[in-house]
């Protein structure tokens, strides 16, 4: 086993301290009884209570969740199809344009995406609301799904698909019974990524939402624009908690799966 050098240990410690201290501070202050967020006045869960009585926040959370569910599912279907076409589809007319359009939203500033989509919706007379946010989120989440799925497809042994064809599958059968089950971890993480991005997005949602649909980030933003707010601290702590539990659980599950696999492979070789 390799021993870690002091330099590397310091880099990691400082790096992770930098990444985690701000979130930790936020969580701690969310239990502060004082309305002045930064002045500690004892432990309290008061702001959590206030948060759950705030109908506007709850409504926004519900809208956000629905938008995220629909848009990430749509993005997963479209993004997986796009990745498959790019990796396996060979040459076709407009391929460069296609991959350009697909990957550009990865880095395109949100303000440009949001503005352009809004102007589209207005010029075709589409009323802004949940539907328009879903369309917008699907478009940019699709790029992230495509990237994740592409990297899995590239590493995928093509002869597996050929073997399926050889054994009597049509192309679609081969995709459904061999390719999809094998790339499914990537498809799932693509979906999760799309889901999170949609939950998280402020700028595009601000452009494309209408008065009928306000998302949680829009609410948070208008609350914190001018200063810190204890209710938002509580909300942040809850969101951080959900993500932490989710990420730790999935990584534990996948770690166990990997360990099991390594053990089995060792057994098979002996």
């Amino acid at each position: 086993m390799r021993r870690i050098s002091w330099f590397n240990a310091t880099s990691l410690t400082l790096g992770f301290a930098f990444l985690y201290i701000p979130m930790l501070v936020l969580v701690i202050y969310s239990f502060n009884a004082n309305k002045l967020v930064t002045v500690w006045a004892g432990f309290s869960t008061r702001w959590y209570g206030e948060l759950f009585r705030n109908e506007a926040f709850l409504d926004a959370a519900w809208v956000t969740l629905r938008v995220a569910l629909v848009s990430s599912t749509l993005a997963t279907v479209l993004g997986t199809a796009a990745a498959y076409v790019l990796v396996r589809g060979g040459k076709f007319y407009g391929r460069t344009l296609f991959s350009g359009m697909l990957y550009a939203p990865l880095v395109m500033p949100d303000v440009i995406l949001g503005l352009s989509l809004l102007l589209l919706f207005i010029s075709i007379g589409l009323d802004r609301g949940m539907m328009t946010i879903v369309l917008a989120h699907t478009t940019f989440s699709m790029a992230f799904v495509a990237v994740v799925v592409t990297s899995r497809l590239v590493a995928f042994d093509r002869s597996l698909e050929e073997a399926a064809r050889d054994l009597g599958c049509t192309r679609w059968d081969a995709f459904r019974s061999v390719t999809l089950p094998i790339i499914s971890p990537a498809v799932i993480s693509g979906w999760l990524l799309g889901f999170t991005l949609s939950l998280d997005d402020l700028v595009i949602a601000s452009f494309t939402s209408g008065p009928s649909a306000t998302t949680l980030p829009i609410k948070i933003f208008s609350a914190v624009r001018l200063g810190v707010s204890p209710e938002i601290n509580a909300l942040s702590a809850i969101l951080i908690g959900i993500v932490t539990v989710g990420v730790i659980t999935t990584s534990l599950i996948s770690k166990r799966a990997i360990m099991k696999r390594i053990a089995e492979e060792n057994r098979a070789d002996t």
Binding site: M1, R2, I4, N8, L12, F16, L19, Y20, P22, M23, V25, L26, Y29, V37, T38, T196, L199, D200, L202, P217, I220, F221, V224, G227, V228, I232, N233, S236, L239, I240, V243, T244, G246, V247, I248, S251, S254, K255, I258
Partner: peptide, 30 residues
């Protein structure tokens, strides 16, 4: 880092990425 540590370290880098961008920016205000 040692092989058995890497998935954990990777997870630690990815975790903030899954956490709301807005909230992470906001955390610096306080």
């Amino acid at each position: 880092a040692a092989d058995e540590w890497r998935p954990t370290l990777l997870m630690l880098v990815i975790l903030p990425f899954w956490t709301s961008f807005l909230i992470r920016v906001y955390s610096w205000k306080a």
